[in-house]
Design a protein around this nucleic acid. Sequence first.
DNA 1: GTCTATATGCTGATAGAC
DNA 2: GTCTATCAGCATATAGAC
Lengths: 195, 195
Amino acid sequence: MARTAGSHSDITGPRLQMAALRLFAQHGFAAVSMRQIAKEVGVQAGALYNYIPDKQSLLFDLLRQHMEDLLAAWEGQDHGGSAAERLEAFTRFHINYHLERPDEVFISYMELRNLTPENFAVIEGLRRRYEDHLEQILRDGMEQGSFQIPDAKVATMAVIAMVTGVTTWYRTAGRLSQDEVAQIYWTMVQKAVSA
Amino acid sequence: MARTAGSHSDITGPRLQMAALRLFAQHGFAAVSMRQIAKEVGVQAGALYNYIPDKQSLLFDLLRQHMEDLLAAWEGQDHGGSAAERLEAFTRFHINYHLERPDEVFISYMELRNLTPENFAVIEGLRRRYEDHLEQILRDGMEQGSFQIPDAKVATMAVIAMVTGVTTWYRTAGRLSQDEVAQIYWTMVQKAVSA
DNA sequence: GTCTATATGCTGATAGAC
DNA sequence: GTCTATCAGCATATAGAC
């Protein structure tokens, strides 16, 4: 199929997403210009608007995609077993998933305030749905008597913050593997909620 | 003492810091213009440069002041007692101090990447010094046999992330008081590191 | 110490040629 | 689909009057 010279819709689209993700994570949404993104993609700034209506939707699409992928990955797993087994699965899943996507995780926490109110509400809804999975595990463990937790909602936020925090310091070249880190965090989570 | 009309160095300086703090926390450093800050202060943009050399130093001064105040507050306390007593004191101090300064805490985590490399190194050094206080408590507790922790460094980061996370969801108008929240977190921290 | 005016450059987004 | 050229506006920071 002949194609107009200089036409690359099949590769420019993905390259745009990747470039925006990397630059937003490195410098912040507000500090990155469309011209910077275009330069990284290898086109002129005007060409980007064949793929996105504006800069805001570029950020929103990145965040929504990340949250939907995260939810699909967790909800696509089989979660039988006791509350303790499900909590262990959640802890290991969360740490491994987040450590493998540092840029997506970073902008999902840092750039929320640069979303329009409507877009913010969508992302918050997805985040809430993810946190609810953990909260349900904690409540089940309390009912069964295997967990003892002062407050289910606070404990949910505490555990999420603790395990997400791994992304702020973990480096692949460091002394610990991902699995070792996940094991250490699981030990601490387990004790924190134990009966 | 007669003063030139329109001269207010004694109030414009503090107002500048407060306005920048509030606006940076709300919209982000890169998204806030000097004109916005000037408008909030009640002067023209050019007048701000009687107080600061540039926008960067405005951010840096806010972050350094916050970290130095935080360190002074903790290091100014008496920390006798067992490792468990010191860990409880640290947990309650950290939560109360952070909940009372939401804007300072927020920009201290969000705006690090907008610091120049030199300024970033200074702030990181202060943050490291603060985290070292917690790490030392955890190591002492392990030596004494009162704590059992898989890894002191990882545990330090895990506990810091957990208790700092309270700032992302706590609202004064909510169902829990600061002391109740601190009590819940202390219960979880205590169990997480217990022998 | 604050003002007005300005230098210099970058911003997001669009129009029309190819 | 990408290009060049452009619009209209805002950015940080400075100069000089008062």
